[in-house]
């Protein structure tokens, strides 16, 4: 059958660690996103409150975008560290 990667990939000993890390970070972000959606669905007026000089909705929006980027950078750092350590052994 015509499957498998288009280029040859080496064995990745860090794969298990990265999967667990990814799932943990996914759960963390999903919880924050779910809280954001839940507030909007149940009590949207809360989003009109002022925090740091902006509406809470704007703060949440920037927060969710920023949080995604921060988690992504941390994830990459930890994955790269694990790959360097576990694949060199």
């Amino acid at each position: 059958m015509g499957h498998g990667p288009a280029v040859k990939l080496g064995k990745d000993n860090a794969s298990g660690y990265k999967t667990k890390l990814g799932v943990s970070m996914f759960i963390a972000y999903t919880i924050v996103y779910a809280i954001f959606v839940a507030i909007n669905a149940t009590n949207p007026k809360l989003m009109q409150n002022i925090i740091f000089g902006q509406t809470a909705a704007v703060v949440w929006g920037f927060g969710l975008i920023g949080f995604a980027l921060v988690l992504a950078v941390i994830y990459n750092h930890l994955c790269t560290q694990a790959e360097n350590k576990m694949n060199d052994e």
Partner: peptide
Amino acid sequence: YLAGWIVALFL
């Protein structure tokens, strides 16, 4: 839409 990229990255 941006949050969806978290699913793409982590999973």
